[in-house]
Write a protein that binds this DNA or RNA. Structure first.
Length: 333
DNA sequence: CGGCTTTGACCTGCGC
DNA sequence: GCGCAGGTCAAAGCCG
């Protein structure tokens, strides 16, 4: 299995987990995405969320049963609209290679080598982030294009080719990915998304869709793809933080609880591993024998993965909470 | 008519 | 340098 997994292209393994995180486990998080039994009391089904927790997958599709404390909630969720996060993990989109495999992870360049939190905070705290800049560039590009219809193809090419300076790289914002068992690709999360692209994914019969938050000045993106190993599993990757309330919230919907504006982000808080550190989540997300170097979640394995892909970093759970402020910890009885 | 999706072209970055 | 693959753009079309 491990050998198989090692061959899995990185883009099918959006989750990364490090032993440092995986070895800590106390308390019980109330992360709505993962703990349906908690989320149930927090979120209204009408929001459209459905994130039953009992079974989650690691990044390689292995289902782990946490029915001991959550199985009962499955039935609840089966009546709900869409999917269930099988796992969630922050992905550092910033400082490492783009999703590796053979490809280049696309036109997205790496960010600095800083803590993934740092660029994210700074970039969000002022709208001149590189991501925002990229966004502006896109707008500018589009604008100038419409303004100058009669430009020749060379000009067109220049516009498509972003006018960024040599050596200037676009920053990636922190990313979170989770797997959901769902027939629906695009999960309802309370925000409005505009699809801006779709690509065939190597080694997968399922295309990957690219969405962008429709809110102005909001640079949050998400990628949705279906696992080639388990077609019933949808891999959703969020990139960036919303700088606005969800439309659903404004309508009195509870969806905003899931993705409220990242206030601490905007304030530049580092909010590292504090009391709210959802350590239970760590084990929820990434159980496994970390000493088993044949296991995808093992130390050895991830060392290899990191070497190979340099994509996923230690999950920063302060960041997690920044992105999902409703992400809290509660003590285990 | 505005907002959204579709889709082909193009860009970037990486490995060989 | 070339080819590949991921990511993005933007025109065209669809839909309410």
């Amino acid at each position: 299995m491990s050998d198989e997994n090692r061959d899995i292209p990185s883009h099918f393994n959006p989750f990364f987990h490090d032993q440092t995180a995986g070895t800590t486990s106390t308390g019980n998080s109330t992360f709505p995405f993962l703990h349906g039994h908690n989320y149930h009391s927090m979120y209204s089904p009408q929001v459209g969320f459905d994130f039953p927790p009992p079974n989650y997958m690691n990044l390689f599709g292995t289902t782990h049963d946490h029915s001991s404390h959550a199985a009962a909630s499955l039935d609840h969720y089966s009546a709900m609209s869409c999917s269930s996060p099988e796992a969630i993990c922050p992905i550092d989109g910033g400082s490492r290679k783009p999703s590796g495999g053979g490809g280049g992870g696309g036109g997205v360049a790496e960010s600095s080598d800083q803590n993934p939190l740092t660029p994210a905070h700074s970039s969000l705290s002022n709208s001149s982030s590189s991501e925002g800049a990229a966004h502006d560039q896109v707008k500018d590009s589009g604008k100038s294009k419409t303004d100058d219809h009669c430009e020749d193809d060379d000009e067109k090419l220049n516009k498509v080719n972003k006018p960024k300076k040599k050596g200037e790289k676009r920053e990636r914002q922190p990313r979170f990915a989770f797997m959901t068992k769902s027939e629906i690709d695009n999960l309802e999360d309370g925000y409005r998304w505009r699809k801006y692209g779709q690509k065939a994914v190597k080694n997968s019969p399922f295309p990957r869709s690219y969405y962008r938050c429709t809110s102005q000045k909001c640079t949050v993106k998400k990628r949705v793809e279906r696992s080639y190993e388990d077609p019933s599993t949808v891999i959703t990757t969020y990139e960036g933080q919303h700088n606005h309330h969800s439309p659903a919230t404004l309508r009195g919907n509870a969806a905003g609880i899931f993705f409220p504006p990242s206030s601490s982000f905007l304030q530049g808080s580092t909010s590292s591993l504090g009391p709210s550190f959802p350590q239970h989540l760590l084990t929820q997300m990434l159980p496994v024998n970390l000493n088993d170097d044949h296991h995808p979640n093992s130390m050895y394995y991830h060392q290899q993965q990191q070497q190979q892909q340099q994509l996923f970093q230690l999950p920063d759970y302060g960041l997690l909470q920044d992105i999902f402020p409703s992400f809290t910890q509660k003590e285990e009885p």
